[in-house]
Structure formats: C-alpha cells, structure tokens
Design a binder for these strands. Structure first.
Lengths: 200, 200
DNA sequence: ATCTTTTTATTGATCACTCAATCAATAAAA
DNA sequence: TTTTATTGATTGAGTGATCAATAAAAAGAT
C-alpha cells in the first residue's frame, strides 16, 4: 500500500504508538520493537522516518507540549474576562485528553527525559514561563499588586502540577473534576484574600 | 580487606551509589556496571549482596521513603502546637537532604518505577495517606470543620508536590526557602479563611 | 602461638540474550 | 524507470546475571 507524501501522517502515527507503548511497558523497558508492533509496522520503518530512538522520543515529547499548547490557546481565545481566562488555564491542564492514562504516563517519561536533554528542558522552561505569565496576567487583572499576582500565579501553577502528579501516582484516587474544583476554589481565594487585605 | 558482618553497611553503600548513578546517567540508561563503578567495586559484588538490579532499585526506593519518614518523625516530635506541626511537615519535604540533586533525581525515578511495581505503588499509597492525615489533623486542630480541613490538607499536599516537581524540572530556579515561605503562607491563608467564614 | 579448616568477600571472565541500527531486497507508486 | 515505501534478516555493541577462582578473615585444634 505504499503511497507518497505520507511522511507527516506516518510520523504522527509513530508518535501515538510511542505514547501507547510508554504506557504499556514504561519508558525504561521501551524498545523500538514495541513501538513498531503497536504501530503495526516492521522494526526498521520507524528508523526510516525518524532516524533514531532518541529522535522518536523527542518528537513524542514535542507532540505532548504542542497538544497542550493548542488546547490552551483554543480555550483562552474563548474566554472573555480575566477570571474566565484563569479558569481556562486550569481546565486546559485537566481535559480528558490530558488525563488519558497513556498521555499521563508519557508526560512523566517526558520529565525524566528532560533531565538529560538540553533541548527538552529548554522547551519545558519556555512552557513554564508562559504558564506563569498567563496566570500572573490573569491575577493582575483583578486589581492585584504585581508582586502578589506573581505569588498567586506561582502557587496556582504548583497546585496544577501537584494535582496532576497525584493523578499519575495514585491512579483513580484523584479525579479531574475534583482537582479542577479545588483549583478554582484556590484561585477565588487568592483574589478574595488580596482584595480583603487591599481594603484593610 | 574482607571483614565480616558488613552486609548492612555494604547494602547501604550500594544504595547510595545507585542514587548517585541515577543522577549521573538517568534511570533509563542506568547499568549495574555504573553503580559498581560508583561504589568502587567489581560488577558481580552488587548481585552478591542484593540479588538483582530490580532488588537494588527497590532497596533504593525504600531507602528514600524511609529517610523522609525519619526526618518527618523527628521534626514532628519536636513540634509542640498544631501550627508548628504543620510547618514541620512542610519543612521536612524541603530539607537540604531532600533537595540534594541526587536525591531529587532518584525520587523522580522512583515515581516512574512505582507505575510498574505493585509493591512500590503500595508504599507510595501508604505514605500519601499518612501525609494527608497528618495535614488534616493539623488543620482540624485550628477549629476547622473536618471537611474543610481535608480540602486544606489536599491542596497543601499538592502544593508540596508541585513545588518539588518544579525544583526537579527547572533546577536552580526554585529554591527551598522560597517554596517553604509560600507554603507556610498558604497554610496560614487556609486557617484565616476558615475562621473568617466561620464567623460570618 | 601456630597450623588447619571453614566461612565470607571479592574479582573478573564468561554466557545467553536483547537491543538499536543498518542494509540489501522487494514492492508499489509516480 | 526512477523514486519512495517497506520488510526482515543481520550486525555489533552492550546488558544482567552466573560462577569458578582467589583472598582474607574467623573459628577451631593442638
């Protein structure tokens, strides 16, 4: 069935297969043969399209970041007031796509991988800063002093990561809806507390 | 130099070497030869004392949990009032020992490993529940309704993990002292907010 | 004290196996 | 007929684990 110009679609399929395989076998035991089997192709084909195991994993990690960014961008564009924008940021991190067990496993593998790769840790840095600045802007729009907005953003970002990590580790215990509820509560609390001390 | 009854000390040394090696080469690329080199012994000796690579890693992970528990126990025993106990819990997670780059790397590897091992995920479950219950007790002692104490404990636990994860990923950006400061601030805020709405 | 015997510690070579990567061969489009 | 897609066998570099061999201490015997 060989057709031409399938490179992009093939790569995407291999990245999906990599995510599924990471979930099934774990990043430590993962082999190219696993990914090939998952994708239903021969062992050599992945090398033909992606060069090496390292490049496959890099492409996979970039895919994860890109997907999250797309979701975030989409939801932010639909949020009109600052408060909705804060909620959009929270919700983007707990969509059903982001909470898929395969995706969650792949993100954790990403974190492990990022410790040993300058380019991956650089991507993570950029994403982290963007999240921080989005949150800060959201809080600052609530008549909050910048310094306070920064701390509110920092704790909110940490809460997102913390809830997400709990979802990874104790699968089933933490459900998305609860995490989102507590997070929104935290955001509201930050805003209220700031306005209260602002008046006092 | 062979002396007798050195088994315990040897095992401990190998666990330390494993932690250092995980930091240097990463959990994915880690080999027994790496650990042996780090410990300054031959390849076979680790098998003699610990059986297999899997058992070495398990021992390493149990060591990490045990150390954290010891620190926590010690600090809790010195904290007299409930508020000090809450602070002790927070500080235990950000001691200089816990924030050592080698230890931090090993914890992340632990999380990855726990996803594929029932016994490790069980240990993590137990620790997680104990932390939750310690925090809940601390909050509940501040005239806080139990339901509210539980949520305060939940968010505090998530914040601890979130800050810790940031320390892993963007090494250097997040320093312990700042994390502890923000966390204590969060705890105070939870208590204040509860007493405020309790009066209203 | 000195000499055996037993037990423990340690090494390094070796084995069986797995993996990522390569490549010639084939098949199907263009 | 040139280019692209795909396979599957092969290669060569490790890997975890085993094991015989050695060395050193401990225990026992006289």
């Amino acid at each position: 069935m060989p057709k031409m110009g399938q490179a992009a679609a093939r790569k995407r399929a291999f990245v999906e297969a990599a995510i599924a395989s990471i979930h099934k076998k774990g990043i430590v035991a993962l082999t190219m043969a696993d990914v090939a089997r998952e994708a239903g192709v021969s062992a050599g084909l992945i090398h033909h399209y992606l060069g090496s195991k390292d490049q496959l994993l890099h492409a996979t990690m970039r895919h994860l970041l890109h997907e999250l960014q797309q979701i975030l961008k989409h939801r932010l564009s639909r949020a009109k007031n600052p408060h909705k924008r804060l909620e959009a940021i929270i919700e983007s991190n707990f969509t059903s796509e982001q909470m898929r067990p395969e995706v969650v496993s792949a993100w954790l593998a990403f974190y492990v991988q990022a410790q040993r790769s300058d380019s991956l840790s650089h991507l993570l840095h950029i994403y982290s800063r963007r999240l921080q600045s989005n949150l800060t802007a959201g809080f600052a729009a609530h008549d909050m002093p910048l310094a306070r907005a920064r701390i509110a953003a920092e704790s909110t970002a940490a809460l997102i990561d913390g809830f997400w990590l709990k979802a990874v580790l104790v699968e089933g215990v933490m459900n998305h809806k609860h995490a989102v509820k507590v997070l929104k509560r935290h955001v509201a609390q930050q805003i209220e507390e700031a306005s209260a001390t602002g008046i006092a």
